[in-house]
């Protein structure tokens, strides 16, 4: 019972963090009213996706045995990472342009593009972690080990724990200054996306499509054991791997280089500071153009 509770709580931790960040962001931008349906839609979609993925694991596992599942998972991770990265840039853009948008006509376009991202990021975040919980719970309900009531109680407790955690987090985050909030959450989301890319890399190298280059670049198992408390937390937060392949290192470093480049290309300037002379360089463009160019990246 207690182990079930821990599995549920741990698997949901990442999803809860992401949902909390999105909600806190919406709240800060006074968009929580418009954004809530999208966020709830994402949560509902994620729960549905969990069930579907778990069912796939059960019914189609023989079928997808071998490499099919690996490609599927790698694809899922890459899409999640890309959406998450895009969401950070969207949040940043919205954050800096909010005043203009509320007053201007841009409010409409803001709804369609960014809010769809919210739905997808939430749904994929919950779906990824939730499918594991669903598989686990389903198998427990089939075994004689636990009664249905104890499973239901544990799940309910797990959800309550997640909600309490969510409340505490969103409260903490809404109390932060906007600047701190952006810094903290952007770093967290990029780290999460980076570790999703590591997962994808591991799966693609398992299929043989992506070479390891060097199978084990270093071994830090003795310094920080992966099964220790510190190792587990670092894995969740920064994608810590004690024995990474060279390909994993390159992907991780490459991802952060890309982020740095994107930041350079989309400097966050308060609206007033756009100088006319800068327009010539082509790096500072009007909000609409800038928006279009960065959503393409």
């Amino acid at each position: 019972m207690l182990s079930l509770l821990f599995v549920v709580a741990r698997e949901f931790l990442e999803a809860v963090l992401i949902v909390s960040i999105i909600y806190a962001f919406l709240h800060k931008q006074q968009l929580s009213k418009q954004g809530r349906p999208y966020l709830l839609g994402g949560v509902a979609g994620g729960v549905l996706l969990s069930g579907l993925l778990a069912l796939t694991l059960y019914r189609l596992s023989d079928w997808l045995e071998g490499q099919g599942l690996l490609y599927f998972e790698a694809g899922l991770f890459i899409v999640s990472a890309a959406l998450m990265t895009q969401m950070v840039f969207w949040m940043r853009r919205v954050g800096h342009r909010m005043k203009a948008m509320i007053e201007g006509d841009l409010k409409e376009s803001l709804h369609s593009s960014g809010f769809l991202g919210i739905v997808l990021v939430t749904a994929l975040g919950i779906g990824r972690e939730g499918s594991e919980v669903a598989t686990y719970i389903y198998s427990l309900s089939l075994s004689e080990q636990f009664s249905v009531t104890s499973i239901a109680t544990a799940c309910l407790l797990g959800v309550v724990m997640a909600l309490v955690f969510y409340k505490a987090l969103t409260r903490g985050m809404t109390a932060m200054s906007l600047n701190t909030f952006f810094k903290v959450t952007s770093v967290f989301l990029f780290l999460t996306a980076g570790s999703l890319l590591l997962e994808a890399t591991a799966r693609l190298s398992e299929t043989g499509i992506l070479p390891d280059l060097v199978p084990v670049v270093w071994n830090s198992s003795h310094l920080i054991a992966p099964d220790s408390w510190v190792g587990q937390s670092l894995k969740l937060l920064i994608g810590y791997r004690p024995m990474p392949s060279l390909m994993m290192v390159l992907v991780y470093v490459g991802y952060w280089a890309l982020i740095a480049l994107l930041y350079k290309m989309n400097p966050a300037k308060p609206r007033g500071s756009v100088q006319p002379k800068k327009m010539k360089t082509g790096t500072e463009v009007d909000p609409v153009l800038n928006k279009a160019s960065s959503s393409a990246s």
Binding site: T135, Y136, Y138, S139, L140, S221, K235, R241, P242, P244
Partner: peptide
């Protein structure tokens, strides 16, 4: 067994339910 398991190894970089 009768319960699901997740084969996991951070050192091998593998994770499978």
């Amino acid at each position: 067994g009768t319960t699901a398991e997740e084969f996991e190894s951070s050192e091998l970089n593998r994770e499978k339910v």
